[in-house]
């Protein structure tokens, strides 16, 4: 082992983590090399010196400052707490499963009531089930629109609702 190699393994030798074979070579080298022995001794002194450096204690305002910062953090946390709670709910698997089930059932039910025709320019709402109860002569007189004048009566059995009134659907038409 050369002095260079010896210095390379010096820390591991001191820390006791050198493997058996390297340690044997290391010991052999040390026996015949006073310079490396000195170097090793100095490193030991350095280790002891570093281990015994006087500890630093926190200043008197350390805790006050930390407390102030934590309090500020807590205050900030409260502002978002409702949001975090909601998010917390979604992290629970049972609630997630229940929510998904509800979503699926709702989608299926809604899809049954969806009009088959696209709702781009106007929505056609068939009102047979309502109009059939009114005699044809009375229909035009009987149909009154509760709020939205855009709803138009096209034929005796149907009404058209332009885009902007779609949200009202059949409930906006009253008899």
């Amino acid at each position: 082992m050369t002095c260079k190699t010896c210095r390379k393994w010096m820390s591991e030798f001191l820390d006791g983590s050198l493997d058996v074979w390297r340690k044997r070579d290391f010991d052999e080298h040390l026996k015949g090399c006073p310079a490396c022995r000195n170097q090793l001794h100095t490193m030991q002194v350095l280790q002891k010196t570093l281990a015994h450096l006087p500890p630093i204690r926190p200043s008197s305002h350390f805790h006050f400052a930390l407390r102030a910062r934590l309090t500020e953090e807590l205050g900030r946390g409260k502002r978002f707490r409702s949001g975090f709670r909601l998010w917390g709910l979604y992290r629970r698997p049972i609630l997630v499963a229940a929510s998904l089930a509800l979503l699926i059932v709702s989608s299926i039910r809604l899809s049954r009531h969806e009009p088959t025709e696209p709702m781009r320019t106007s929505e056609r709402i068939v009102t047979h089930y309502i109009l059939e109860r009114i005699s044809p002569s009375d229909r035009s007189a009987s149909i009154s629109l509760n709020s939205d004048s855009n709803v138009q009566c096209a034929t005796p059995d149907t009404v058209f609702v332009p885009d902007q009134t779609v949200s009202g659907r059949i409930r906006t038409v009253s008899f």
């Binding site: 490193m43 280790q47 010196t49």
Partner: peptide, 21 residues
């Protein structure tokens, strides 16, 4: 290891460690 050797070298030169040479 490299950190210790550097530190050792520096402190030796300043006289705070026994001179390994």
């Amino acid at each position: 290891n490299r950190g210790r050797l550097r530190l050792q070298n520096k402190l030796e030169r300043l006289g705070y460690l026994p001179d390994s040479m």
